[in-house]
Amino acid sequence: MAGMKIKYTKTERARQKKILKVSQRMLPLFEAMEKSLMVTINGIAEQIEKIEEAIERNNKKAKPWLAVFSDNWVDVSQLISVNKIVTRPVDVAGVRVQQYEKVDFNVATIENDMPLWVDDAIELMQEQLQLKAEIKCLEEQIELLEEELLDVRARVKLFENRRIPNAQMAIRKIGQKLQDDERLMIATAKVVKTKNE
């Protein structure tokens, strides 16, 4: 408000009233949006936690047989690689994000002379890569949603701390000034009338 020049007119008061009305109507919307974004982000964080637990469960399950991955007959890195993470755009809490669909893998053909553990290893690696790809997509979603949350919070603060108080103050000041002017006008008129009499 400091440094802000107010026009003490009825038109300005009407304009400030309109600003106040719009701001008071918009504030709950932005607050709801902020809440919705926070709930969505927390939900995604929980989803990530669950996926991380699934990864840990798979690791635990594979722990007794991890030694086969160092088999000098097989180069595990040649068995599988990620070709592409397939996603599709969706709107989450009003923000356009990429949702995980599937992972497109390059999987080596399993020959008959390949050790039997290779099948289990490919299955495990596919599952872990899929889960990690899903986490990657969800983390990117959180990043975008947090950006939006910052923006919304800035708007809420703007309405709460600047727009609404400024409009209220402007309306009050203009009202006082207009009242004072009216009183002065009446008093002047009375003085003029008395003098004329």
Binding site: V76, S77, L79, I80, S81, V82, N83, K84, I85, T87, Q98, M125, Q128, L129, K132, A133, K136, C137, E140
Partner: peptide
């Protein structure tokens, strides 16, 4: 192999 995901495209 599983960390990090390489050659990926979103």
């Amino acid at each position: 192999v599983v960390n990090p995901i390489q050659n990926s495209e979103v």
